[in-house]
Write a protein that binds this DNA or RNA. Structure first.
Length: 271
DNA sequence: CTATGGACCTGAATGC
DNA sequence: TGCATTCAGGTCCATA
């Protein structure tokens, strides 16, 4: 599920509600991607501050250290006054006096990691190689263009890697390239400044639009985490192999790049 | 350093 | 119907 928009919408859904909450009980299953890094009991008695996001990581500030939460492929968070008894795939419960935060993640590619601070090795190991935040001022056309120059692989896997710019997953990488009229197979370093400009604009537009849509759909986040896939309602190319391009009607093509599916319109995205 | 392929894990969809 | 295969919105790690 979670690319940047989903993670951001999730963050907005519970950040205000959990702020100031004192942790009364904490449970984290072993068997997520990485171990928590301390006994869950040690979290009891600490207070939750702000909830930030870096790429697809959520960062819960505690008065002692922080929790990095990643949703992996199938993770979702819900925040409610009281949670029902945990099911098999509910791998984390953070019970506070302001509500209960639960991680549901069938595939267990997600993670909950405690670190003493943002600069600690534990946190830096996960965060240090991340590219720029696409919706921040630091994401500008010139430095984006410059950064792409050092990548000789196809643009689609480069976007997906998160090394240049974070937040684009397999769906939005295809969507953004469609909007920019760029073929997913073009080498990143071969893109002209003009094309990088279009790509830059497409990334901002698509991601912020998706957040707005999700925000309105998930107004009642307190109750649930929303329907998987509802962000896809306006996908132009993703998952639409053989179907007509919404702009020109040409059948959408499906290819594989580094074991991942890519979709594009062979007419609108000529090179 | 960059680029590639395998690994992790479950469940839904597809094929015989 | 039953069983095997393929695919899925992520990303770290080993290898070239």
């Amino acid at each position: 599920m979670p690319e940047l928009p989903e993670v951001e919408v999730t963050r907005r859904g519970f950040a205000a509600g959990i702020r100031g909450g004192r942790i009364l009980h904490a449970r984290v299953d072993p068997g997520l991607r990485w171990p928590l890094g301390l006994a869950a009991d040690r979290l009891v008695g600490t207070t939750v501050g702000g909830v930030d996001r870096r790429g697809k990581y959520l960062i819960l500030e505690l008065d002692r250290g922080l929790l990095l939460i990643h949703l992996g492929m199938s993770g979702s968070l819900s925040f409610r006054p009281v949670q029902p008894p945990p099911g098999v795939h509910d791998h984390m419960d953070l019970v506070t006096d302001r509500g209960q935060l639960r991680l549901h993640d069938p595939r267990r590619f997600g993670a909950v990691v405690w670190a003493p601070g943002l600069e600690s090795p534990r946190a830096q190991k996960l965060l240090s190689k991340l590219g720029v935040e696409p919706l921040s001022d630091a994401f500008d056309v010139r430095s984006f263009h410059a950064a792409l120059k050092s990548h000789h692989a196809a643009i689609k896997p480069v976007l997906l890697s998160g090394r240049v710019v974070v937040g684009l997953g397999n769906i939005y990488a295809s969507e953004v390239l469609f909007r920019a009229g760029i073929r997913p197979t073009v080498r990143a370093d071969r893109l002209s400044l003009a094309r990088v400009e279009r790509l830059h604009a497409a990334i901002r537009t698509v991601l912020s639009h998706a957040i707005e849509r999700g925000g309105s759909t998930l107004r009642d986040f307190c109750g649930s985490t929303g329907e998987a896939g509802h962000f896809l309602l306006d996908a132009a190319v993703y998952g639409r192999a053989g179907l007509p391009c919404p702009v020109c009607g040409t059948p959408i093509k499906h290819i594989r790049q580094g074991q991942r599916s890519s979709y594009f319109c062979p007419s609108c995205q000529r090179f």
